[in-house]
């Protein structure tokens, strides 16, 4: 029970859900008579499950979360988005390979390193997809998350199923976190496989000049993937909020994808220097600091703080909006 509680308070969303929702009753027969267990006794069904992780899953959405993820990753539109993301590193890898053969030319930055070491295709691909392609894919999925349900009318049926509104928001939020992770991992994996297939491998020279082994560099690649995924969380929360505002998914998607471009523009206007450090894109390039020895944490920490702030603010805003909204679609 105490372990459950610790896990349940791990995130704001989870804590809210745990506090507000009643615990699943074990038998439908009991549910039918309207009798519900509450309080300490109610923990029995969840503590009966073997792993505490499952208990957390059951609290934040249970089978609905599983169903949401399955629906998300079976939907053709999302699969096309992921396939497009996977195609980017493959295309870059082939382009570098071809240009090497024909012109012997070399690009700058991470791209320059790719022909020496295939692992650098991971870093190059993430640095190319993070500013535009990853946020666009996420913007589509996040903007659609609630407004899509509203526009096709399924929101009302989910709510009367019934799903508590906070639970629905938690399920959508967690599934967006999973999408951030999966979309970034797809880019990394496609890049890793392409890089290993097309280019030589060996010790990796870091930005700070040191050289580390391939294994150590792969670990760094995993960390970078996680940091890039985390960099997207602020946008995910923003998209989720925008999605609660409208019944028109295309509008929410346009806002959620367009706002990253807006941030990019604001980043280069000198007069806006006061707010630039607080844009969610401000510290996006900070993940590259992992490729130093010792790792330079200041930018990474700032980035995570910004993302946490955006998640807190926009999750609360989405909560305030969804729980008070009239669902008339």
């Amino acid at each position: 029970m105490s372990q459950d509680e610790v896990l349940a308070t791990a995130t704001v969303v989870v804590a809210q859900t745990a506090a507000r929702t009643e615990v699943q009753t074990a038998t439908p027969a009991v549910a039918q008579t309207g009798v519900r267990t509450t309080g300490p006794a109610a923990a029995a069904p969840s503590s009966a499950t073997p792993s505490p992780w499952r208990s957390v899953i059951s609290r934040i959405g249970g089978t609905l979360l599983v169903n949401e993820l399955r629906t998300m990753f079976r939907r053709n539109r999302n699969l096309v988005l992921l396939a497009a993301l996977a195609a980017i590193p493959i295309a870059i890898g082939i382009a570098i390979k071809v240009s090497l053969r024909h012109h012997g030319q070399n690009a700058g930055g991470f791209l320059a390193q790719v022909s020496n070491n295939g692992l650098f295709l991971v870093f190059a691909s993430l640095s190319l997809t993070l500013p535009i392609f990853l946020p666009m894919a996420l913007g589509v999925v996040a903007g659609d998350s609630i407004s899509g349900e509203a526009s096709q009318g399924t929101l009302r049926y989910l709510l009367v199923a019934p799903v508590g509104r906070i639970r629905l928001l938690a399920v959508k939020g967690v599934s967006l976190v999973v999408f951030c992770l999966v979309s970034t991992a797809v880019v990394s994996l496609a890049a890793l496989l392409t890089g290993l297939a097309l280019f030589p491998t060996g010790p990796v020279t870091l930005l700070s000049g040191d050289s580390i082994s391939m294994g150590a560099a792969t670990v760094k690649a995993v960390w970078i993937t996680l940091l890039v995924a985390a960099s997207l969380l602020g946008l995910a929360a923003l998209g989720l909020f925008v999605s609660t505002l409208t019944d028109t998914p295309i509008a929410a998607m346009a806002v959620a994808t367009g706002v990253t471009i807006l941030c990019g523009i604001m980043q280069v206007i000198p007069q806006l220097s006061a707010i630039q450090p607080w844009l969610y894109t401000a510290q996006w390039p900070s993940y590259a600091d992992v490729l130093r020895d010792p790792v330079y944490f200041s930018g990474i920490e700032h980035n995570l703080e910004i993302q946490a702030g955006y998640v807190a603010v926009f999750t609360l805003a989405a909560w305030a909006r969804l729980t008070t909204r009239d669902v008339s679609s």
């Binding site: 699943q24 249970g62 599983v66 169903n67 629906t71 199923a161 019934p162 799903v163 639970r167």
Partner: peptide, 11 residues
Amino acid sequence: ARYDAADRTAD
């Protein structure tokens, strides 16, 4: 199945 999964009292 999705609507049923949404109801946490559904077995």
